[in-house]
Computed example of a mutant assay.
Amino acid sequence: MFESLMLLVGATVLLLGSPGPAPLALAASSATFGVRNSLPFLGGILAGLLAAIAGALFGVAALLKTAPQLALALQIIAALYIARIAWRIATAPVLSTAEQRQDKPSLLDGFILNLLNPKAYMAFLALFSQFLLPAEQEYLRYGLTALVCFGCAIVVDLGWLLAGGALRRVFSHPKWARTVRCLLALAMLATVLLGLLLWHS
């Protein structure tokens, strides 16, 4: 059981913790708007992951795997939505103002970001098919695996949120703030484009 748990944790951290649109969006949001103001965005991202876990368990991931055109359409919609969030981060006011706080990514933004992301469904499909925890009953195997995956996601996403928050000091200098925000936004867009290219190839 311990060996299976460690394999599952390692695979989940690698799949969900690698720099992708959602982790980079979290880091960029907390660097731009602050950790506290980005907590609703984190909540939305985690809620979207719960939807992806449920989708993997109830066959949405299998459907996306057998219908690549549908998956690609979702990927494009998600890419456009991530581009919208990247634009809001890149063009946010340099100083912390009430207007800036109002423009921060919301809980709904985070939820939609992961809900439309077919890679999240595929990641959980891979985890459930390769790293299922041993238990006597099938529902326990899937339930425990889902619980561990979600726990890893919370830790990983909090790490990205705090890493972005650590960059907040850089953002207090107007000279560097715009440059770093634009770089984070471009990194988000680059991961989206890379994902689309890999998906299409």
Rank of each mutant, 00 (worst) to 15 (best):
residue 2 F to P: 00
residue 102 Q to F: 08
residue 140 L to Q: 14
residue 102 Q to M: 09
residue 196 L to Y: 01
residue 100 Q to D: 03
residue 91 T to K: 12
residue 72 L to D: 05
residue 134 P to D: 12
residue 32 T to E: 01
residue 56 A to C: 05
residue 179 T to A: 10
residue 116 L to V: 04
residue 81 Y to F: 15
residue 123 A to F: 10
residue 181 R to H: 05
residue 10 G to R: 11
residue 74 L to C: 06
residue 22 A to R: 02
residue 77 I to F: 11
residue 119 K to A: 13
residue 159 G to V: 05
residue 107 L to E: 00
residue 179 T to M: 08
residue 187 A to E: 12
residue 188 M to W: 08
residue 153 A to F: 06
residue 189 L to H: 07
residue 48 G to E: 01
residue 80 L to R: 05
residue 144 L to N: 09
residue 180 V to H: 02
residue 176 W to G: 03
residue 130 Q to R: 11
residue 76 I to T: 08
residue 115 L to T: 06
residue 45 I to A: 13
residue 49 L to P: 00
residue 66 T to E: 14
residue 81 Y to G: 07
residue 13 V to E: 01
residue 77 I to V: 15
residue 132 L to A: 08
residue 129 S to D: 15
residue 6 M to R: 11
residue 93 P to E: 07
residue 175 K to T: 11
residue 185 A to W: 03
residue 149 C to R: 00
residue 52 A to Y: 05
residue 16 L to I: 14
residue 173 H to L: 12
residue 147 L to C: 12
residue 123 A to V: 11
residue 98 A to I: 07
residue 9 V to E: 07
residue 94 V to S: 13
residue 94 V to Y: 00
residue 14 L to C: 10
residue 100 Q to T: 02
residue 34 G to V: 06
residue 29 S to V: 02
residue 168 R to I: 01
residue 201 S to Q: 13
residue 168 R to S: 08
residue 201 S to T: 12
residue 178 R to P: 00
residue 112 I to E: 01
residue 153 A to D: 10
residue 100 Q to K: 15
residue 176 W to N: 08
residue 79 A to R: 00
residue 172 S to W: 03
residue 103 D to L: 13
residue 111 F to R: 01
residue 169 R to P: 00
residue 36 R to W: 06
residue 188 M to L: 11
residue 124 F to S: 01
residue 96 S to C: 03
residue 126 A to D: 07
residue 43 G to A: 06
residue 180 V to T: 13
residue 175 K to S: 11
residue 9 V to P: 04
residue 159 G to S: 11
residue 67 A to I: 08
residue 198 L to T: 14
residue 71 A to K: 05
residue 88 R to F: 07
residue 41 F to T: 02
residue 126 A to M: 14
residue 59 G to C: 09
residue 67 A to N: 14
residue 34 G to S: 08
residue 40 P to K: 04
residue 194 L to R: 12
residue 127 L to P: 03
residue 52 A to S: 15
residue 127 L to G: 05
residue 85 I to A: 00
residue 14 L to W: 12
residue 60 V to W: 05
residue 107 L to S: 03
residue 153 A to R: 04
residue 104 K to D: 01
residue 125 L to Y: 13
residue 96 S to Q: 10
residue 51 A to M: 14
